[in-house]
């Protein structure tokens, strides 16, 4: 036996024992940073372990953007697109309206009444003068913004308005729009608030 071995493994002093010492602070910090980065990566790449999300898709929202639209979903997407480009400029993307420009559509009694078609008349002929919306007085002019839209597009946008931002009213069909367009005729006169109220009765 060499001297080296003797020094290294002498058993006279008994079994070696492990002692404790605190982990250095930098290791703890780096570990926590790695765990945090891993969490961020999982959050953005795992699709929350959804069985329908496969790479290269990283989330169900991303997958949703590639779903071909048809039927009710397509009409709703179309309605939203039309709303954003025609109505949303004054009524706002959130449907809350803009002071001095346009009243709210979200929760408005003019929008959500079932079985009444006042809402269909407004974009086809416009509104002029005083009108009361959700207990608030407005005195503005709205042109016949929807008169130039095809029946399907106007029906889609009205359906969108009746279903978005918490509104829950029945859908509008292209046939209904067509009937009212015929009823109003070629040279529409803007309605007043009173005329519209009478339609409800």
């Amino acid at each position: 036996m060499s001297d080296e071995n003797k020094n290294c493994c002498s058993s006279e002093t008994g079994e070696p024992t492990a002692t404790r010492s605190a982990a250095p602070m930098w290791i703890i910090v780096v570990t926590l940073a790695l765990v945090f980065a891993g969490g961020l990566f999982l959050d953005s790449h795992s699709g929350w372990f959804d069985k329908n999300v496969y790479a290269p898709y990283q989330s169900s929202a991303q997958l949703e953007a590639f779903q071909p639209k048809s039927g009710a979903a397509a009409a709703l997407a179309r309605g939203k697109a039309v709303y954003e480009s025609v109505c949303g400029i004054c009524h706002g993307s959130d449907g809350l309206g803009k002071p001095g420009q346009a009243p709210a559509l979200a929760g408005s009694e003019w929008v959500t009444c079932n079985g009444c078609n006042r809402l269909l008349h407004i974009p086809l002929a416009g509104v002029a003068g005083a009108i009361k919306v959700q207990g608030k007085d407005w005195n503005l002019n709205m042109a016949a913004m929807g008169a130039a839209l095809p029946d399907e597009d106007l029906a889609a946008v009205l359906t969108y308005i009746r279903g978005a931002w918490g509104n829950k009213a029945e859908a509008v069909t292209a046939a209904e729009v067509k009937n009212i367009r015929v009823e109003i005729g070629k040279s529409p006169q803007p309605y007043t608030g009173e005329q519209l109220l009478k339609m409800l009765e």
Binding site: K51, N52, P68
Partner: peptide
């Protein structure tokens, strides 16, 4: 076949 988890448009829309 186009599926929800693997979408594509088989015929032109």
């Amino acid at each position: 076949a186009p599926l929800y988890e693997a979408p594509f448009t088989p015929i032109t829309v």
